[in-house]
Deep mutational scan, measured.
Amino acid sequence: HNLTITQGKLFFHYNPKLCLSEIHKMEEVSGTKGRQERNDIALKTNGDQASCENELLKFSYIRTSFDKILLRWEPYWPPDFRDLLGFMLFYKEAPYQNVTEFDGQDACGSNSWTVVDIDPPLRSNDPKSQNHPGWLMRGLKPWTQYAIFVKTLVTFSDERRTYGAKSDIIYVQTDATNPSVPLDPISVSNSSSQIILKWKPPSDPNGNITHYLVFWERQAEDSELFELDYCLKGLKLPSRTWSPPFESEDSQKHNQSEYEDSAGECCSCPKTDSQILKELEESSFRKTFEDYLHNVVFVPRKTSSGTGAEDPRPSRKRRSLGDVGNVTVAVPTVAAFPNTSSTSVPTSPEEHRPFEKVVNKESLVISGLRHFTGYRIELQACNQDTPEERCSVAAYVSARTMPEAKADDIVGPVTHEIFENNVVHLMWQEPKEPNGLIVLYEVSYRRYGDEELHLCVSRKHFALERGCRLRGLSPGNYSVRIRATSLAGNGSWTEPTYFYVTDYLDVPSNIA
């Protein structure tokens, strides 16, 4: 807008934040220059609390790290170098490059900038070799853009010569660093050979998330399962459950009422301010606690030095998902009996873990797994792929695949051998790939016309006998059925096997 004052003059007093240069501009645009008398524009009460600059400061050096910015700028000295009290560095987070010096300023003089007072450097006698002032900004957020400017702080001049310097606002972004852990990993099994893994992005990506790394490792069953005799009275049979499938998407929606109208769909109840505040506090606490764990609990591995020492970490090797089922080394339970199943799973520490690289999504279907087997899954978020990966501390989750139908069934015939004193040795093959492992066998036998009897055969007993022995049988026709019990439950009964026990007292003698 054009402003013209045809008559009258300007009068400025007691404006401590208004620089004289701005008042002189007002004289020019209003056409009143030359009308004012000496005392109409006070030299001592206008701009006496402001830094009124008329020179431009330029930054000469900028260096960044993930949490620091090192700045240096060209030296500046007023005509009387004693008038320079120091520099004021202003900075704040700036997602967009549209910041002005006066953003967030209120009537009390406060604003949204963080201000650092910096002492002037030592003055050199040689004007050509003056030290460049600077400042190291610490405690910054990774991968965050900051708006920065600097200006001088000078003393009051009796001659009211307006001098000083100020830089333009520059924008500097800190470097990326390792992201925080992925949030809320959930693993479920939808079949006997697959596990579905879902997660949420890290709360602090500290860069642009480029991919996720998912490692999985087959877990050995508890050692007590191999040692305890679950045929003993009072000892509860062990059981394991597989990871249940995901709930429906509708039930997972946030901010939804727990109660549904019987007449149909209901609208979600909005969260109160107290609920939102509580969630923010919980989120802040979780982030602080995660940072504490990362800094205190997890110790970084030592990389190899120039002395030739090897990095103890196993090298990563990509495998196809079809090879995942046989990740671990199978060892027989008892070496003397080769027909026992290889369900003991000690994992070799030198073995390469299978892994998958996930790009542009937060889910993965891990296939080719062994049925009813526990897996430990390790999830890392990465925001750099080359020249070397920059990934987060791992988040861990466990899951067990679903049982395989008929995996616990005894394959092959049940054979028998009759000894003296009416002892019958029953023999059968253990299931080759049971659900988890076989903890015991149930032997059901009966003599024709009598009630059915049951015998429990422990895992250890089966390994020693290759089956079991029935003792003290009365003469007669017998039928026997056997079924295995694994961590997933009972298998199917075998087809009945028949044998006849004679009275050993009636056996004919070869003595003449």
Score class of each variant (00 low, 15 high):
Val414Phe: 04
Phe215Ala: 13
Gln252His: 07
Val480Gln: 10
Trp216Glu: 03
Ala394Asp: 03
Asn510Gln: 06
Thr210Asn: 15
Ile366His: 02
Thr288Gln: 15
Thr386Asn: 13
Gly374Ile: 11
Tyr500Asp: 04
Lys357Gln: 07
Val331Pro: 14
Glu388Val: 09
Pro314Glu: 03
Lys460Val: 08
Ala488Asn: 15
Ile209Pro: 04
Thr272Lys: 05
Met402Ile: 14
Phe462Met: 11
Pro300Lys: 07
Thr343Ser: 07
Asn255Met: 13
Pro244Cys: 07
Val331Thr: 10
Ala407Asp: 03
Leu228Gly: 14
Arg286Phe: 09
Trp242Glu: 06
Asn360Gln: 08
Tyr396Asp: 02
Ile438His: 02
Phe499Cys: 12
Thr415Ser: 09
Glu247Tyr: 13
Trp242His: 15
Asp291Lys: 03
Arg400Leu: 04
Glu465Asp: 11
Pro434Ala: 04
Pro354Cys: 14
Glu350Gly: 07
Thr241Lys: 09
Ser444Phe: 09
Met427Lys: 08
Leu228Phe: 12
Thr386Tyr: 03
Asp503Pro: 13
His454Ser: 02
Lys236Leu: 13
Cys267Gly: 09
Arg301Thr: 14
Arg376Lys: 15
Leu235Tyr: 10
Ile438Thr: 13
Gly412Met: 11
Phe372Val: 01
Asp323Tyr: 13
Cys269Glu: 08
Asn383Ile: 14
Ser367Met: 08
Cys382Ile: 01
Glu279Cys: 00
Glu388Ala: 10
Ala220Ser: 12
Tyr259Val: 06
Val501Thr: 04
Lys361Gly: 11
Ser367Glu: 13
Glu417Met: 08
Ala336Gln: 15
Pro413Gly: 07
Ser274Phe: 01
Thr210His: 15
Ser367Leu: 12
Ala394Asn: 09
Arg459His: 13
Gly472Asp: 07
Pro332Ala: 15
Thr494Gly: 00
Ala220Gly: 14
Val393Gln: 03
Glu495Phe: 08
Tyr230Cys: 15
Tyr230Met: 05
Arg319Leu: 10
Thr494Trp: 01
Phe355Val: 09
Glu221Arg: 12
Gly472Ser: 10
Glu258Asp: 08
Pro205Cys: 04
Ile418Arg: 08
Thr485Trp: 08
Leu379Gln: 01
Glu224Thr: 06
Tyr396Arg: 12
Ser257Asp: 12
Val439Asn: 04
Ser363Gln: 13
Gly476Tyr: 00
Ser257Leu: 09
Phe215Asp: 06
Cys266Ser: 14
Phe372Met: 06
Glu452Asn: 02
Arg459Val: 13
Lys302Ser: 11
Glu249Thr: 15
Thr401Ser: 04
Thr494Ala: 11
Ser342Pro: 11
His352Gln: 06
Glu279Asp: 12
Leu237Arg: 08
Leu228Ile: 12
Glu362His: 12
Asn435Phe: 00
Asn295Arg: 12
Val334Ser: 10
Arg400Ala: 05
Glu217Arg: 01
Tyr212Ile: 15
Ile209Gln: 13
Gly234Gln: 07
Tyr498Trp: 06
Asn326Gln: 05
Tyr212Arg: 00
Ala395Arg: 11
Leu440Lys: 12
Val393Leu: 06
Cys231Arg: 01
Val423Pro: 02
Phe337Met: 12
Glu247Met: 08
Phe298Met: 14
Thr272Ile: 09
Pro238Trp: 12
His454Ala: 04
Arg316Val: 15
Val365His: 12
Ile366Ser: 00
Asp273Arg: 11
Arg466Met: 09
Ser257Tyr: 11
Asn295Ser: 10
Phe246Tyr: 08
Glu404Thr: 11
Glu378Ser: 14
Asn339Thr: 12
Asp311Met: 15
Val501Trp: 02
Ser268Gly: 07
Phe355His: 10
Ile276Ser: 13
Asn421Asp: 14
Asn360Phe: 08
Leu426Ser: 03
Ser223Arg: 10
Leu235Met: 11
Ala263Val: 05
Lys406His: 09
Lys357Met: 08
Ala309Lys: 15
Arg318Pro: 12
Gly308Arg: 09
Phe355Thr: 12
Asn255Gln: 04
Val296Lys: 09
Pro300Ala: 08
Leu232Phe: 11
Asn477Gly: 09
Pro244Lys: 07
Val359Ser: 12
Leu237Ser: 09
Leu440Met: 14
Cys391Ser: 03
Glu452Ala: 13
Ala394Phe: 07
Thr485Glu: 10
Lys432Arg: 10
Lys357Pro: 07
Phe226Leu: 11
Ala263Arg: 14
Ala309Gln: 05
Cys468Thr: 01
Glu227Met: 10
His425Cys: 04
Lys361Pro: 10
Asp250Thr: 15
Asn295Pro: 05
Glu224Met: 15
Leu505Glu: 12
Tyr448Leu: 12
Lys460Glu: 10
Gly368Trp: 07
Arg353Lys: 10
Ala407Pro: 04
Thr502Tyr: 14
Asn510Trp: 11
Ala395Thr: 07
Glu282Gln: 14
Thr241Asn: 13
Thr328Lys: 12
Asn435Ile: 00
Glu350Ile: 08
Lys278Glu: 06
Ser509Met: 10
Asn326His: 13
Lys278Trp: 10
Gln219Tyr: 09
Val457Ser: 05
Thr401Val: 07
Gly412Glu: 03
Thr340Cys: 03
Lys302Pro: 13
Arg319Tyr: 06
Phe289Met: 10
Glu389Cys: 09
Ile482Tyr: 00
Cys267His: 15
Phe355Pro: 10
Cys456Ile: 02
Ser243Ile: 11
Ala407Ile: 06
Phe215Tyr: 05
Glu247Lys: 13
Thr343Pro: 11
